[in-house]
Design a binder for these strands. Structure first.
Lengths: 166, 166
DNA sequence: TGGATACTTAGAAAATTTCTCAGCTGCAAG
DNA sequence: CTTGCAGCTGAGAAATTTTCTAAGTATCCA
């Protein structure tokens, strides 16, 4: 039962409504993936979703996971995150927020936008000075560092490429 | 001759010195890759570097490109960027800066840190409220939107996943 | 100059993502 | 309720990106 918290339930309910509204068909596979995504703040990879859902839907294929995530993303219900090398992570939290990413284990944590969240328009001049004609849609902030567990256990040298313990 | 600008020459010279200082051996492959990287502000992928350098070094293998980029990164001379799905891009500009990334074609442009560049310490409380124990090393900003060329030629719907025209 | 060490090669392999297409299914219309 | 069909799924192959292995080669220090 992945959805204990009311926030996740609300997000899942909204996803259902918006999947229909987008003209996408409601299939068991989509429901399962949307529900799992909505209830998981760790931003799972396609692989992780597949492994978690497989026991309950043994016939589901890997391509379906990708197809579904693409469909959800196209409908604006989730986004694909490229925060570190390796597999993409998927995020159903569509409220503006940033991410803290562990350099060592690749862990991702949502970080609400700070108080000093400047409006996008404030960045435009700065961006356009460097990239003339660039039309700014969003500003994303990534906090890099070590998560609590990795910081507590730093061997001789720590790796820069994430997701590769050892 | 990839290095017309003095900035790139300076960066290349510093790379040479620091490659030695890191205990890394100076091989022709490393020199070529470091030079190409230092002179290219577009943050090439491993594939692009390989294709550019291959004519001058027909025996160079693909693995060497990756090995070298890893070695340079470990020595703090470049970083691997995961800005959009697909191949990683490599950046030899080690001064603090941000990136503008085109949603459509994947183009990357350096954007100097704006005047309102707050020190890292200002973000720490905000990050630690969401991720207790996270030790913050760096804050990275990504400007998402459309580059000039893509903005001028937006068909019906534009894609969110970069690097995939069509 | 010579030797230890680290690097390069080439190819295979692993990991991630996309594609193809045949068959099935949700769902809207009748 | 039944039907039709657009759109979805499943399975596997393929494409892309990155890593690994083994053996030969080059760099650099003494």
């Amino acid at each position: 039962m992945p959805n204990a918290c009311p926030e996740a339930e609300a997000r899942y309910a909204e996803m259902l409504a918006r999947v229909r509204a987008s003209g996408l068909k409601l299939t068991p596979q989509r429901l399962a993936i949307a529900r799992e995504l909505a209830g998981d703040p760790t931003h799972p990879t396609a692989q992780e979703l597949f492994e978690r859902l497989r026991p309950g839907m043994p016939t589901m294929s890997f391509a379906t996971v990708y197809n579904t995530l693409d469909a959800l993303a196209a409908a604006g219900l989730c986004v694909s995150l490229s925060l570190s090398p390796g597999a993409a992570r998927f995020d159903a939290n569509m409220t503006p927020h940033n991410h803290a990413v562990c350099d060592r284990c690749g862990l991702v944590r949502d970080v609400p936008s700070c108080a000093n969240g400047e409006p996008i328009t404030e960045f435009a001049p700065c961006v356009n000075a460097a990239a003339p004609g660039f039309s700014l849609r969003a500003v994303e902030r990534i906090y890099r560092g070590l998560c609590e567990a990795c910081a507590a256990d730093v061997p001789t040298a720590f790796r820069t490429r994430a997701g590769k313990p050892r």
